[in-house]
């Protein structure tokens, strides 16, 4: 039961970040590495402010802006300077590593003790339940806003750019600007997840971004494998399920006695399996059809 509840609370957080990654991954077809930098960026910006006594809700909102800025940098490099998307992400991520250290002034800030976070603000609740409540609330708002945005004139244009860039240009849509907008929203959400994570875990750490993209992609792929062909809004909702399931699997693996130091190797292996699963499935089906086809010819010879 404890396992379920802790998986739920962490899974909800992960899904905020997975939804962010989903926007670049599925709308723009880019696995944006910036995520690994904007996640700790969100944590750093929030931690620094919280320690300085800023209202935790304000601190949490401000990291959204910081994440948008990181997304803007990547989007700008990719669209205006035509740097390939993978390199763009690596460039921003590398730069952000220093930026994050600069913001925090050290590699680690503890948020335990007398400081006020969004978790301690809900003092009537246990920290885990406070985390679940906040995660669910933030997700509800985020999904509502995203669905609304992607149905506005600009949002529709942004989707068209991801779907058919040539067509969007022919209809007067500036593809570069739309891509930058998506980059910004995506990284804003990832930074928000980083900020909440720091407040729940009680610390911000400059290396906490490692694995962000792998976790997010795993959550997305689980959701896509389990439920296919969904509208945008429903897809976002299923990603929450994907993230929780993924967290549950990992919790089980840890309980099983896997050394936490090996956890990232496990993340990578699991995502590899998820990514390859659709292809393997197809191959097996094809193999079976071929065998059946060959068998029918053998029968003919015997006739």
């Amino acid at each position: 039961m404890d396992l379920l509840i802790s998986s739920l609370s962490l899974g909800l957080l992960w899904s905020i970040m997975a939804i962010g990654v989903y926007l670049t991954f599925r709308i723009l077809d880019i696995a944006d590495m910036t995520a690994e930098g904007s996640f700790p960026l969100g944590a750093a910006v929030t931690a620094r402010q919280i320690v300085a006594g800023v209202n935790p809700w304000l601190a949490t909102l401000s990291d959204l802006l910081a994440g948008c800025l990181a997304g803007f940098v990547s989007g700008f490099l990719h669209t205006k300077l035509k740097i390939p998307a993978l390199l763009t992400g690596i460039l921003t991520l590398t730069g952000l590593y220093s930026v994050n250290l600069l913001i925090m002034g050290q590699s680690n800030i503890s948020l335990l003790g007398r400081v006020s976070t969004v978790i301690t603000q809900l003092s009537g609740l246990s920290p885990t339940f406070a985390a679940i409540l906040i995660g669910a609330l933030v997700l509800a708002v985020v999904i509502f806003l995203l669905v609304t945005f992607f149905n506005t004139e600009i949002g529709l244009a942004a989707r068209a750019v991801g779907d058919n860039e040539q067509m969007s240009a022919a209809n007067g849509i500036n593809a570069d600007n739309m891509k930058i907008i998506i980059y910004m929203i995506s990284n804003g959400l990832i930074a928000l997840a980083g900020s909440l994570m720091a407040q729940i875990n009680g610390y911000a750490d400059s290396s906490m971004g490692i694995g962000t993209i792998v976790i997010a992609l795993a959550a997305i792929i689980i959701a896509e494998v389990l439920v296919q062909n969904l509208s945008f809004g429903w897809r976002l909702i299923t990603i929450i399920g994907g993230a929780i399931i993924y967290r549950l699997i990992i919790a089980l693996v840890l309980q099983w006695g896997v050394d936490p130091n090996n956890l990232r190797l496990f993340y990578a292996l699991m995502l590899t399996v998820f990514l390859a699963a659709p292809l393997l499935q197809q191959r097996f089906a094809q193999q079976r059809r071929r065998q059946k086809n060959m068998a029918s010819f053998k029968e003919e010879q015997h006739d």
């Binding site: 945005f149 506005t152 004139e153 600009i154 949002g155 529709l156 244009a157 849509i173």
Partner: peptide, 20 residues
Amino acid sequence: ENLSLAMLRGQRRKILTPGV
């Protein structure tokens, strides 16, 4: 959605107006 996109060709697209 495709037709609605084309309806706005040559116009400024807004953020507070529904696309369809």
